[in-house]
C-alpha cells in the first residue's frame, strides 16, 4: 500500500503577496507604450499573482506529487495505452534545431542598451550569431576595428 499522500496546496492567488518576486525581465524604456493610443490600453496590469521563483517551483513540484503517472506507477487505463514514454523522445524534441532558441540578448549592460533607438550603423555589429554564421557568399567583411 502506498503511504499517505503529500499535502494539498494553496492556489497561486493565495500564495501571492503584493510586491513580491517577479521574474527578472529587462525593464523597457518608460515611454515604450506611449505610441499606443489610450483607448487600446489596459488601465491596470492584469491581476496575476506575485510570487518569487522558489515559490513558483515549489508550488508546481508539490502539485506534481499529487498526480499518479506512468513514471510513478502502473496505469492500466483501457483504450489509452499508458505505456512507458522513452526519455529519448524528450531529448529529441528539445534538439536546438527543432526548437530554435531565442538569441541571447546583450542585455542592459550592452553598450547600446535595450532602449537604443539609433538607426543602423555603417556596418552591422558582428556580435550576433546570425552574423557570424551567415553562409552568404555576399557576406560583407567584418567590421573593421
Amino acid at each position: 500500500m502506498s503511504v499517505t499522500g503529500p499535502r494539498l496546496q494553496p492556489t497561486l492567488a493565495e500564495l501571492s503577496r503584493p510586491g513580491r518576486g517577479g521574474y527578472p525581465v529587462p525593464h523597457p524604456p518608460s515611454d515604450a507604450l506611449d505610441r499606443i493610443p489610450a483607448e487600446h490600453r489596459r488601465p491596470a496590469p492584469p491581476g496575476l499573482p506575485e510570487l518569487a521563483e522558489p515559490e513558483v517551483v515549489r508550488h508546481f513540484v508539490n502539485l506534481s506529487q499529487l498526480n499518479h503517472a506512468v513514471d510513478t506507477g502502473f496505469y492500466p487505463l483501457g483504450s489509452c495505452t499508458m505505456k512507458y514514454n522513452p526519455k529519448l523522445g524528450e531529448w529529441a524534441a528539445r534538439l536546438p534545431g527543432l526548437r530554435p532558441p531565442p538569441p541571447v540578448r546583450a542585455g542592459r549592460g550592452s553598450p547600446r542598451g535595450p532602449s537604443s533607438s539609433s538607426g543602423p550603423s555603417s556596418r552591422p555589429s558582428p556580435r550576433s550569431a546570425a552574423w557570424r554564421r551567415s553562409p552568404s557568399s555576399r557576406r560583407p567583411e567584418r567590421r573593421a576595428s
Binding site: 497561486l12 517577479g22 527578472p24 529587462p26 525593464h27 523597457p28 524604456p29 507604450l33 510570487l51
Partner: peptide, 18 residues
C-alpha cells in the same frame, strides 16, 4: 504567468512594443 507576474508580463509586452 506565475513566474512573471503582472509586472514581468507587462515588461515583456512593453519591451516587445519598444
Amino acid at each position: 504567468l506565475a513566474a512573471l507576474g503582472p509586472h514581468g508580463l507587462r515588461d515583456v509586452a512593453a519591451g516587445s512594443a519598444a
